[in-house]
């Protein structure tokens, strides 16, 4: 089952195991410069608000109601990353992530089964977060929002159509007996800055898609378990619609979050960036399909368009190192 709790999706499988609970939150962040340099991880600037689409049936497109799921507001000037939080016991999950039904790890079109070669999913808690499309081994292109239909999203670049938009998430838990086998011993040991939007609302397109933005150093870790360890009979999936923040109040009656700082403002304020080290964990290679995508800047240049008015390169000064098995206080949170 999936619940919406405090702006996060809570996937739980109580019929399988009490510890089979996974939280997925959608963190707001600044757009890293799209300048072909590889940047460290930007901060989390708080959760995007999440709402049931069913609660706003009169205001959202019929297609959104058909998809079901939830929705969040996003400005074109911001980016998103997914934070995976499994319970303290570390119950493992295989998670498929797609944007516009284009797999974010492989660039392949949506399918529900798990593929190991190439691996088309991430494994939590080994993978603490995902910030974008996996374009090379150890490099992703950031998830940034562009109006669906403008041609920038990965979906549109690959399929030529603006059909789906949003984010699609499918979670498979580890089989309970496999969890007990791997973790019984460990279980015993453990015991049980802000600016207000000034853009005009008029004419803003509602539906946003995720496009490949700037490059970031982030590894996608290889699945350390066996294919048979995953319970493919008990998957839960959710469609996350992305609404333009400029029309969020019109849909929900609630104000959207404030516009996040730019990368330059954030860096100039001396605030930290992050690097994550997964120790000796195996890393999967990047997708050839996704590597062919044009970044928002490159595509804009080719079309003589200026989709990114603020895209100054920055020199992250303060970089905080985070290691696998994040300890308390090792949070990737910034504040501006």
């Amino acid at each position: 089952m999936i619940e919406l709790k405090q702006d996060a999706l809570l996937f739980s499988f109580p019929e399988m195991h009490q510890k089979a609970r996974l939280g997925i939150e959608f963190q707001r962040t600044l757009r890293i410069p799209d300048d072909d340099r590889d940047y460290p991880l930007p901060p989390g600037l708080g959760r995007f608000p999440l709402r049931h689409v069913d609660d706003f049936g009169r205001e959202v497109p019929e297609l959104w109601l058909q998809h079901g799921g939830v929705m969040l507001p996003m400005y074109q000037s911001e980016a998103l990353w997914l934070n995976f939080e499994s319970s303290r016991g570390g119950y493992p999950f295989a998670i498929k992530i797609a944007a516009g039904k284009t797999n974010a790890i492989t660039g392949e079109s949506w399918k529900e089964k798990l593929d190991r070669r190439p691996q088309d999913y991430v494994v939590a808690p080994e993978q603490p977060w995902l910030d974008g499309y996996c374009v090379e081994r150890g490099v992703i292109r950031q998830f940034v929002a562009m109006p669906l239909g403008s041609g920038y999203s990965a979906e549109e670049q690959i399929t030529g159509e603006a059909e789906h938009g949003g984010l699609q998430i499918l979670v498979y838990p580890m089989k309970a007996e496999a969890f007990e086998r791997y973790f019984r011993r460990r279980e015993r040991a453990l015991g049980d800055a802000c600016r207000y939007a000034s853009e005009s609302v008029q004419g803003a397109a509602l539906d946003m898609g995720l496009a490949p933005g700037g490059r970031m150093r982030q590894e996608i870790y290889d699945d350390p378990y066996k294919p048979a360890d995953w319970d493919l009979e008990h998957g839960s999936r959710c469609f996350v619609h992305i609404a333009n923040s400029l029309v969020w109040r019109g849909i929900t009656g609630q104000p959207p979050p404030t516009v996040p700082a730019t990368a330059r403002e954030y860096t100039d304020a001396g605030l930290p960036w992050f690097e994550y080290y997964g120790d000796d964990a195996e890393v999967v290679g990047g997708s050839k399909v996704l590597a062919q995508l044009k970044s928002v800047l490159k595509l804009g240049e080719a079309r003589k368009d200026t989709p990114l008015p603020e895209n100054d390169s920055v020199e992250p000064g303060k970089i905080i190192a985070l290691r696998k098995g994040l300890a308390k206080n090792q949070v990737r949170e910034g504040c501006f």
């Binding site: 619940e3 049931h52 058909q66 079901g68 799921g69 839960s236 959710c238």
Partner: peptide, 9 residues
Amino acid sequence: VREVRDGEW
């Protein structure tokens, strides 16, 4: 408990 509804997609 209210669940997030899944639809056709």
